[in-house]
Amino acid sequence: MNAKTADKVATVVICLFAGIIVLVLLGLLGFILFRGLSHISWDFLTSAPETIKAGGGIGPQLFNSLFLLVLTMLITIPLGLGAGIYMSQYAKPGKVTNSIRLVVEVLSSFPSIVVGLFGLLVFVNIMGIGFSLFSGALALTVFNLPLMVRITEQAMAGVPREQKEASLALGLSRWKTITSVMLPIAMPAIITGTILAAGRVFGEAAALLFTAGMSSPRLDFTDWNPLSPFSPLNPFRPAETLAVHIWKINSEGLAPDAGEIAAGASAVLVLTVLLFNFGARWFGRFMHRKFTATR
């Protein structure tokens, strides 16, 4: 086989694989949307679920998912940014840094159910926080932090060295160089990565089963005092998220329309994650233009 034929064969094979991936993705997406879209309505998105009657909604679950996401990100972003900047700019190459990096890698490949059990043991029981949004957020932080650290580290490492040197050569401190020269360049990549990580959090179920819990109290959406046990904003109440709800309703749902509800909820979940992805790209580009004064 000469080089030209080999090239053609390789091209065809690669295109074929790419095509298969796209087909699988489109098929999956199409299936979920086809089954679920017809069930989505304003009422479905806002009303509370029913246990045995038909016609329940996913309002509290949707709210819980979004609220949990915000809580998780509030903890993850500062920690991840700090650790990532440290790893890329301050840590001296050597055994300690390498082992930290190894730990981060291992942590990022942890099965989420194990993270959930860890959360149950440490946050829920030992620390005594109980089944709550806060426990869930902490568990998701464990799950998400490695990704966040790596995103930040890679984004910072991707900044051209000359940019950093140019700033240092002007007599700027390392901190000022990081915040004013490097972070603006790294920001689009960090934001895109963060939003993608957020999508992962949004769809996570296993890590939440034993931490945020599988039930919600009867939420009173007129009570916005974060300390009241029935307030949606109380971070120390148990909360069933959308992904957990899908799992539960599919495995032990009693409502006659459980199948449709699961399908509708799945479609909502997938659409939201898609929204995150497109939002991430758009926002990343927007921030890049804003930070770099490119017009």
Binding site: P160, E162, Q163, E165, A166, S167, L168, A169, L170, G171, V181, P184, I185, F291, T292, A293, T294
Partner: peptide
């Protein structure tokens, strides 16, 4: 470093 300016091989203006 403020007293010693530097210019590189490839132009490296800040992204500003």
């Amino acid at each position: 470093r403020q007293q010693i300016g530097m210019v590189w091989q490839r132009p490296n203006p800040f992204h500003k």
